[in-house]
Amino acid sequence: MQNTAKSLFEEGILDEGTYNKISGSESNPLFSLFWELRTLLYLGVLLITSGFGIVVYQNIDTIGHQAILALIAVLCGCCFFYCFKQGEPYKNGKVKNASTFFDYILLTGCLLFLTFEGYIQFQYQVFGLRYGLAAIIPTVVFFFVSYRFDNISILSMAITGLAAWAGITITPLHLIESNDFTGHSVIYTAEVLGIALSTAGWVLMQKGIKSHFFYTYVNFATHLLFVSTLAGLFLSEGGEKFLWFAWILALAAACVVFAKQEKSFYFLLIALIYTYTGLTHVFMTSIDWDNEAVVWLGMWYFMASCAGIIYFLVNHKKIVSKLFNPGSGPDTSNDHL
């Protein structure tokens, strides 16, 4: 397969100029180390900030708090100074920062700020018992920084920080495990936070302020909303269940609309899986398991529902286009999904 370009040229599909360009670039291919170096940088930042944190923690008694605080503050200040000096000016659209290194200086600065703020609270109780205030300050800073320098990593940290302030963990691996969804207060908090995040993201997108951030907002919000709604569904009983289930359906509908608009199958899939979990729960709790014949019914339920969903997934373009504009041909605009 070395000579793809050559055979295309011989078949007359590519003209000579293009062929020469391609064979020129292929005779001397460049090997990009972009992601390898970026990973090394990330590891370096992780190691250095962690190691630094440990050293500080071990030597609190000997170095003296002011000295440590001053050192952290100076380092943090240097990072931010560099960023403000080197960074591109703010724009509503995407901003491309010149060097890869830039993002990591920014990240280090933010992490040091977190250390600094935690330290002064731990040592001097600057915020006293107003822990909420202490938690919200880095979040506000991170939101500002992420918008100022157009950085979705920091935005993700800001969103998780906001959730932490509300008492919820929404980092991907801990969403289900770290939260105690058996209490209704957590569920309602999560619902409010999810709606707030998606609304805020939507409004900002409508205004054209960093519209590419919308995806990150919605990604956190959908998982949070679906998981908390499912928790609500599992906890509720009787007629209340159907209210929760109706809410899942509403969320799923919103997801489908969003998926269609963004041409992102990811959100359709999320909606489908969470809704299916809810539906299965409703089905399983609403039938009487004492009867032996019901076990068969359960098997039939899984087989029939999954076969139906697979049919829908494979033919979803045809089905959706029939539903929305009967008479017209299948919509092929989403083909790359």
């Binding site: 977190l114 932490a164 509300a166």
Partner: peptide, 9 residues
């Protein structure tokens, strides 16, 4: 980044 560096409530 969010997973490794975030604050946990």
């Amino acid at each position: 980044v969010a997973e490794t560096f975030s604050q946990q409530p």
